[in-house]
Write a protein that binds this DNA or RNA. Sequence first.
DNA 1: GCCGTCCATGGAATCGATACCATGGCGCGC
DNA 2: GCGCGCCATGGTATCGATTCCATGGACGGC
Lengths: 348, 348
Amino acid sequence: MTTHRKHPTVSEVARLAGVGTTTVSRVINGSLRVDPKTMARVRRAIDKLGYMPNQAARILRGARTRTIGLLIPSIADPFFSSCAEAVQEIARANDSLLIVMTTGNDPHTEIDNVNVLMRHRVDGMIVAPGNSQSTVLRDVIERLALPVVAMDRPLSGARVPSVVANNFSGASLATRHLIEHGRKRIVCLTGETTLYTIRERVRGYRAAVESAGLPCILDTSIRDYKSAEYAVESMLAGADPPDAFFTLKNSTTIFAFEAMQKLRVSIPDSVALVGYDDFELAATVRPSITVVRQPVEEIGRIAAEMLFEGLTAHHQPHRSAAASRPQQVQLETRLIRRSSCGCPSSTL
Amino acid sequence: MTTHRKHPTVSEVARLAGVGTTTVSRVINGSLRVDPKTMARVRRAIDKLGYMPNQAARILRGARTRTIGLLIPSIADPFFSSCAEAVQEIARANDSLLIVMTTGNDPHTEIDNVNVLMRHRVDGMIVAPGNSQSTVLRDVIERLALPVVAMDRPLSGARVPSVVANNFSGASLATRHLIEHGRKRIVCLTGETTLYTIRERVRGYRAAVESAGLPCILDTSIRDYKSAEYAVESMLAGADPPDAFFTLKNSTTIFAFEAMQKLRVSIPDSVALVGYDDFELAATVRPSITVVRQPVEEIGRIAAEMLFEGLTAHHQPHRSAAASRPQQVQLETRLIRRSSCGCPSSTL
DNA sequence: GCCGTCCATGGAATCGATACCATGGCGCGC
DNA sequence: GCGCGCCATGGTATCGATTCCATGGACGGC
């Protein structure tokens, strides 16, 4: 490993160029008029020394850090990695860096991470709270007096703008679609039910079945392939077997699908299937799977855009009075009709 | 948006607690002995003011930034998001933040990003270079005198440690497996061939077919579903149609699989299929797809661990002489046998 | 030819946390 | 009883870039 060469400073550049530090600073920031000849000399000195401004010093002087934080449960999750990609792009467009931290939906880790980001004086952050009801997280965030945007899940009671998908209408749309196909016993396979998004989807499902006079049947047991196989098998073997499954998240969809394949359940003839969240192969597997598609990139993009709008407002406090009430953006989902619900298989 | 409350400083804490700044600093860092009573007073003052140390000031004093950078082509790519997750975990374990930047494999963006990270004085970085031959990137990185680890793709000619998978042996293993199944005309569907990893895989494929006296047939045309359908259809309709496809990356595998489904090509009876890179549904689709699995998380984890080892060595320069030659770590891949290659479908 | 003005430039204070060095007070040993 | 030493604590220079204010020189108008 190469020895740690000390970074050159403005003074060293100034000395080499035979000018004052003020002039060097002006050349770097292009702020005021500098004599072209002087400027050229300074430029040469900068190149020669390989000078790079020390951000820490600038920040200490009061500049923005041009750094934002992103708190998500996991990077490997396709939903959040797509969001993160969108956020990263908007950050770059705003000359900012993105610090990604994972929380695993753990409230303690979340608060820790918020504090760490705060110490680093990020300009703002985007958070997907594991628990939308968490008053602790809300209080911490309100104390920050720092622009924060909640993503995918709101932070209830907080004066924090949020960008979420309409999980209620998405789930209810999907359920109604199954009902229109004549399904009478639609089982909702929820997986974990602690998250806001899942709860909303359950609400949407419940509203749809109840208003159609159908039974509301929830199964919360699926965590992996094993539990899926057990759940599917025992339900189908029981009296009054279901004629449709509605899975509330990606992994549950895949486990259930896998289990049904293994058990040679015919889809959609004996049991229909609709999943929440689209994924690359949903169109490729046989039968192709009907899903509720969320505007993933858009969620990330809009959250980031709102954050940066908040940032500039933050730095021009004069006009903030009127625009200061938090925006709650809710994006609509689409039902992607494929064959697992009983629709004639559409193209793609 | 709340008004920007100025952050309290050590002096303010000191004044409130009736002590000097030195004492406050000691309490925060737990460095020297402080009278328990004084310590309690300072602690109370810190809580009351909601004081948080300003990282910028610390860094300016010469502390490490406890921040590392990660340069990858894309966050949304499952391969890199899994790497990133692993890197993030190691960073957290080392009390460091992770800045993620995407390059889209564009050399210009890469160099830009390296410079931005440098200005922020990251302690080190992990890079997946779009072009392993890039002398420009290499030179920039060598000038930094900063710990850098290359991930997934080496940086040729640079004194930079790297962590990569053995793409050559992975591809050649897969190809030999097809040969053992009696396949004689194995077509390699490469997709883009600019990346190091793909080139290595091509080499591995070529070595395997040539040493078996079989023809080396490359098709580089697949970019999306459309081109896959065209390529597959025309090859199968031609004279001497292939009896196996070997796809070199995830998206190509999926496009080719989709095309074969659509064209009702029977897998593996008329044409076998092996893909490079495992993915969640490869086991679920019918037929399940045999793939070469890379140790994804391990690549990220080891790269990060090497970086942090380099970091500590960097800060304790005395013993660095012997340990200073770059390590080139190469991880082995595994062939996951499923049914698309002609193997009797194994469990899972 | 003299003075006012503008322009290029430089000196030095500033941001906040740290660490060197100094100091005052107390206890203990002889 | 006196002095030495140790411990808790504080003052202050320092890191590097920015910026307010000052200064000196040149040029133009009358």
